[in-house]
Each structure stands twice: as structure tokens, then as C-alpha cells.
Design a protein around this nucleic acid. Structure first.
Length: 254
DNA sequence: ATGGCTACGATCCGTAGA
């Protein structure tokens, strides 16, 4: 089974890229973030014409997540249980016995800001929820834009970024707390090229300079990690006209 | 030079992203 995650930064703008990518990559399911669409405006029929169905949880302008899949999803849930949040950042569902959690973590804006505090509270609630989910689902995959670059090798210029949002120690500790539940960073199960990133700033020719961060992740329960045969970042869609600033990340499961 | 894009909903600029 092939699973993927992609922050599309507006599904309305990126629908053509997504449909082209689905035809080429043929994932069984892709988790989307920043759809920025109310549920009534989700392009379900366009995706259906491409052979995919979807479950989604969106809002106007900001956030919004979806799981787009070849086959029907079951046990669909949204949000983090017990964590009241107007922001649409979480959707989960089961596909072929694999529990899929699709996440769009808060950005955090700046260390010490109100949004940064919200990010850390969101992560604490996420960890508590996933602690239960790991127990409940031996085959658990957590995919999404986690908005944390876990280590310095995930940062194009660690010195310039030191202590900044996305890289700060409390954020990295929050990411490691997920690994502490037994989840594995799928990307690091394999040899990878140096300076592998999943996001590049639109400004300053970030992509051409490979000035990026690895902030989009696929975390796998031990049961899934054991059968994972690859995990890669597909930079091709980032090279297109009017791209998302994120690239899709894909994992092949046994 | 602390900016530099891009998307959005609102106008002709502000908010947010990362």
C-alpha cells in the first residue's frame, strides 16, 4: 500500500497538480493539508473522475485537511478528542486495516507568541490522543505537515534557523514525544540524500537554492515500519508553474 | 535591507503561512 502526504496550499489552486500527481504516483491514499475550502466546495466530483474518493474537514481561507483514497474509508473522525478547536487540522480514517491520521500542525508564527503556545498545547493534546491510538491500532500511520524540522540535518541553514519557530527545542521535543510513543520517522528508516527537504520558501528563490526544511512527515507504528520498503520526497510538483511550497512525501508499505 | 512570495478576502492593503 502506498500512502502519501501533501500540503497543497489551496486545493482550489492546486487541483490540477493533484490530479496529475495522482495519475502518475497512484497512491492508495494521500493526506492533504491547507485545502482552504469549506466542505461544500470540496472538488469531490473532479477527484471521482480521477478514480479517487475523499473524506474532508475544511474551512474557508485557512487550514483544512482531507484524505483522498482509491477505496472507501471507514471509521472517519475529525479533530483531537477532548481538544476543542475551531481550526480544521485533523482527520483520521481506516483504509484496508491501516489507521491513517492526517495532520496539519499549527505553524506557531514566532517563538513565544500566542500562536506558538497554541502549537505546543496542540502537540500535547495530540501526543495524549496518539498514545491511545498506538495501543488501539497496531497498523497506524500518522502523516502530515507537522511544522517541525526534527533535527539540524532537516534544515538548510541550521545556524540561521537556530531557535526559530519550526526548529526550536520545545517544538523538537514535542515531535520526539511522538517518536516516544513508538512511532518511527519513516523517512529516516532509509538512506536519504543529504539536504532532503519537503518545504521551500516561495521567496528568495528558496527552491532553486534548495533552501528548505523537512517539516512534512510520515510516522509509522512498529508494525507498519517493519514492512515499509521506501519513503521518499517527490520534488517534481514543486518545479511546476504555480506550485505549492510543499512537496509530497510518499511511503510504500508492505 | 529582518525584506524578498503566494493565497485569500477584501479592495487598491492586511493577515497568514513557514
Amino acid at each position: 500500500m502506498k500512502l502519501a502526504t501533501w500540503n497543497v496550499n489551496s486545493l482550489k489552486v492546486r487541483l490540477g497538480h493533484l490530479i496529475d500527481w495522482l495519475a502518475q504516483a497512484k497512491p492508495d491514499a494521500v493526506c492533504l493539508q491547507e485545502t482552504k475550502l469549506e466542505d461544500g466546495k470540496f472538488p469531490a466530483s473532479e477527484l471521482e473522475a480521477a478514480g479517487y474518493r475523499a473524506s474532508f474537514c475544511g474551512q474557508k481561507t485557512y487550514n483544512g485537511v482531507a484524505i483522498v483514497s482509491l477505496r472507501p474509508l471507514s471509521e472517519i473522525s475529525t479533530g483531537i478528542p477532548g481538544f476543542a478547536d475551531e481550526q480544521r487540522r485533523v482527520i483520521a480514517a481506516t483504509l484496508d486495516g491501516v489507521r491513517i491520521v492526517c495532520l496539519y500542525a499549527p505553524n506557531g508564527q514566532a517563538v513565544g507568541s500566542e500562536k506558538y503556545d497554541y502549537k505546543l498545547r496542540w502537540y500535547a493534546a495530540l501526543r495524549d490522543w496518539l498514545a491511545d491510538e498506538v495501543e488501539r491500532h497496531p497498523r497506524l500511520a500518522v502523516l502530515g505537515d507537522l511544522n517541525v524540522a526534527p533535527e539540524d540535518r532537516d534544515v538548510h541553514d541550521p545556524q540561521a534557523w537556530q531557535g526559530q519557530v519550526l526548529v526550536s527545542e520545545p517544538e523538537r521535543a514535542a515531535f520526539r514525544a511522538l517518536l516516544g510513543l513508538g512511532l518511527k520517522d519513516g523517512f529516516r528508516l532509509f538512506e536519504q540524500p543529504e539536504k532532503s527537504f519537503s518545504w521551500w520558501d516561495y521567496r528568495m528563490m528558496g527552491f532553486r537554492r534548495n533552501a528548505g526544511l523537512r517539516i512534512d512527515h510520515i510516522l509509522l507504528s512498529p508494525g507498519l515500519a517493519a514492512g515499509c520498503s521506501s519513503c521518499t520526497i517527490d520534488k517534481a510538483p514543486r518545479k511546476l508553474e504555480r506550485p505549492s511550497d510543499h512537496a509530497p512525501v510518499t511511503a510504500e508499505l508492505g
